[in-house]
Design a protein around this nucleic acid. Structure first.
Length: 289
RNA sequence: GCUGGAAUCGUGUAGUGGCAAUCACAGGAGACUGUAAAUCUCCCGCCUUUCGGCUUCGUAGGUUCGAGUCCUACUUCCAGCA
């Protein structure tokens, strides 16, 4: 069976460009494991793959729901697995590429998700204090999550009557996981440059359009950049402040992504060009009968 | 030159005689299974794994059992007058 090529790394590490290049050379199709590019109309602010890239290589995981629609990690897992099967059925190589660690792991470690969210229950429980929720868990013999000061997690634990960690201990057999290792300083600089680029590309106009079309408070609009531009349009932040703050938030995102990835010991870390060599050697030998 | 005000962690601040000293930002580490670009936790003067130890609030003195806080001088900055 053709391998599943998984490329992970922090935002702005260059994983998308690498995936596109390899997919062109080796008959691949790309599934974006990205919790933001799934939304339609959010193109610039999410650094969605360009039209050229999307024309050059089939992309999946893009524009699948409207901002405001609910789309979860469990939905993504189902979607991605379907796409992987379809891509293989066409005789192509699937590439799972993205920075949303939970999405990647849901596929790679075959997470078994628990019960669906119960909005009514959640609303009811959110009125209680953390202490009251803890008491409730103890009384009902519900195991508290490790991060038990995170109210959201405690509520979820109640919702599914415990902590769910059902998953495979090892990555699914057909996967090759490569992480793009980037020097910290260089990554920081790339993030700064990308901020400038987003604004040149018209992210302010895009945000205003999205705000009008979908409202500013929808779930999808909580991404780093859009709330900041909302503040800018209301005059509570200058453009320079927005740019600086966005760079900071994006940097923190990159750090959190790295924290997530660090604990996955199955990732093979390479610099961008080494990753390319490694994967193209692997794919070249694989395609020979 | 005179008069007033200010000087506290990388930055901005709280603190008006009694605990290395508030809060925010920035920074660092971590958690993560149906919101994950979300949400949350911890660290953040120096040494120490912890206990704890050491040195601190412009500089130098002084008053006091005790000073970031009061007094004196000096330095720097800001404002007003010249």
């Amino acid at each position: 069976m053709t391998p599943l090529i998984v490329i992970v790394g922090p935002t702005a590490s260059g994983k998308t460009a690498l995936a596109v290049e390899l997919a062109i050379r080796f008959n691949g199709e790309i599934i974006c494991a990205d919790s933001r590019t799934i939304y339609r109309d959010m193109n610039i602010g999410t650094a969605k793959p360009s039209h050229e890239d999307q024309l050059a290589v089939p992309h999946w995981g893009i524009d699948i729901v409207d901002p405001g629609d609910r789309f979860t990690a469990a939905d993504f897992k189902r979607y991605a697995n379907t796409k992987i099967d379809e891509i293989r059925a066409r005789g192509h190589t699937p590439f799972l590429v993205g920075g949303t660690g939970l999405y990647v792991d849901a596929v790679v470690f075959d997470y078994k998700f628990g019960v669906q969210a119960d909005q009514e229950l959640r609303e009811k429980l959110s009125k209680y204090t953390l202490e009251e929720l803890h008491e409730y868990c103890i009384k009902n013999n519900i195991k508290l999550p490790e991060n038990q000061l995170n109210k959201r997690y405690v509520i979820r634990a109640i919702e599914q009557a415990g902590v769910n960690n059902r998953r495979k201990q090892h990555p699914i057999s057909t996967s090759i996981i490569v992480g793009i290792a980037t020097d910290r300083q260089i990554l920081r600089t790339r993030i700064e440059h990308r901020t400038e680029q987003l604004f040149k590309n018209g992210v302010v106009e895009e945000a205003i359009m999205l705000g009008k079309k979908y409202g500013w408070s929808s779930e999808a609009m909580t991404g780093n950049i859009y709330p900041l531009i909302h503040q800018f349009t209301q005059g509570t932040m200058t453009l320079l402040e927005v740019k600086n703050k966005f760079t900071t938030l994006d940097w923190r995102l990159a750090k959190r992504q790295l924290t997530w990835l660090r604990r996955n010991t199955y990732i093979k870390w390479y610099g961008l060009s080494d990753a390319e060599h490694y994967l193209s050697d692997l794919l070249a030998s694989d395609s020979k009968p």
